[in-house]
């Protein structure tokens, strides 16, 4: 994977790279261990301090980082016996959205996630993680399948949005997303969504009608991209940084607004510096939520999900 470094993450990336080198050394020679511990501590501290200062627009860039782990990158760390299931049974298979069954901590689950491509060629196949209606109809199939066989649903959100194209409109992008939301709201099993990168609007929400929603520390979730918002409001897409701030789309904002239950910590420098560690943090959060939700009956799960979304909004009565 070609490595890509954003200007503001440079000092952290340098430290993280040195840690990685030293870790390799320490594996063969224990005398490097004390030095490694010291450097790890320093890296963690510097990364925390530097990343604590990041503005929303910089966090948006992190959430879209080309090296950031995507759904399929986490699968080997989180699951066993993963079998990808393809196709919407109507038109095609959409590679921008991956689905399947897998074992999570010994129990079978249904997995649904957006999938971005790595590099130009892969991105043609994955359509930059922007699903067509076929993707959403496949997801809908999975939600129904999960309900039928009483398997919890784990989703991973990471998309700029549903694809706005000719074919997508012809084949009913709106209806596909709407039906996906309906199928998710009806699911009679625990549903946990984790925003691992970009949560772009309705195309993200189609994987987000969950009993619990988690967001990675540098994940975002928004009704419209900051660029789109800026070009509508100020006719100027370059004011995206202002829009990113106004829209309140960072993990902390989402938690404040009650959109997510939990912010999942990322390793120093972000998930892309250490996929294994990021997966470990995701796993802890998933396990805690799933354990809790597994105590609930199917009716309770549907009701809890209904009530969770029912109260979201800001209203004053006259």
């Amino acid at each position: 994977m070609a490595s890509y470094v954003l200007p503001f993450e440079k000092p952290v990336v340098e430290l993280v790279t040195r840690v990685r080198e030293l870790r390799e050394l320490a594996e063969s020679d224990r005398q490097y261990l004390p030095e490694l511990r010291k450097l790890e501590e320093k890296t963690s501290k510097v990364a925390r301090e530097l990343f604590a200062e990041l503005d929303p627009w910089q966090k948006v860039q992190l959430s879209r980082h080309p090296n950031r782990p995507y759904t399929m990158d986490y699968v080997p760390y989180l699951f066993q016996d993963f079998q990808e299931l393809h196709g919407d049974r109507r038109f095609a298979d959409d590679a921008a959205l991956v689905c399947g069954v897998a074992r999570y901590r010994g129990k079978s689950v249904v997995l649904v996630g957006h999938q971005k491509g790595r590099g130009a060629k892969d991105n043609v196949k994955r359509n930059f993680g922007m699903p067509h209606p076929e993707g959403y109809r496949k997801a809908q199939r999975m939600y129904e399948l999960a309900s039928r066989f009483s398997l919890p649903i784990l989703t991973f959100i990471d998309t700029p949005g549903a694809y706005p194209g000719l074919g997508a409109e012809e084949r009913g992008q709106s209806e596909a997303i709407g039906s996906c939301l309906a199928a998710m709201s009806r699911a009679r099993v625990p549903v946990i969504a984790t925003i691992i990168g970009e949560g772009g609007s309705g195309g993200a929400l189609a994987l987000g009608v969950a009993n619990r929603v988690h967001v990675l520390e540098y994940g975002t979730y928004s009704v419209i991209s900051p660029e789109g918002c800026a070009s509508i409001l100020w006719k100027d897409g370059s004011k995206a940084d202002v829009a990113a701030k106004s829209l309140r789309i960072t993990a902390a904002d989402l938690h404040d607004l009650g959109i997510v239950e939990r912010i999942v910590e990322e390793p120093p420098g972000g998930a892309h510096q250490d996929t294994a560690q990021a997966a470990k943090f995701i796993d802890e959060a998933l396990n805690a939520a799933l354990t809790e939700l597994s105590m609930k009956s199917a009716d309770e799960l549907v009701t809890q999900r209904y009530d969770r979304f029912r109260v979201l909004g800001a209203i004053t009565s006259a």
Partner: peptide
């Protein structure tokens, strides 16, 4: 747009109510 992510959540809310 002016209600940001909370307006997105209305999509889930309305669809769930429609299902009821």
């Amino acid at each position: 747009m002016q209600e940001g992510i909370l307006s997105l959540m209305q999509m889930a809310k309305t669809v769930a109510a429609r299902e009821r």
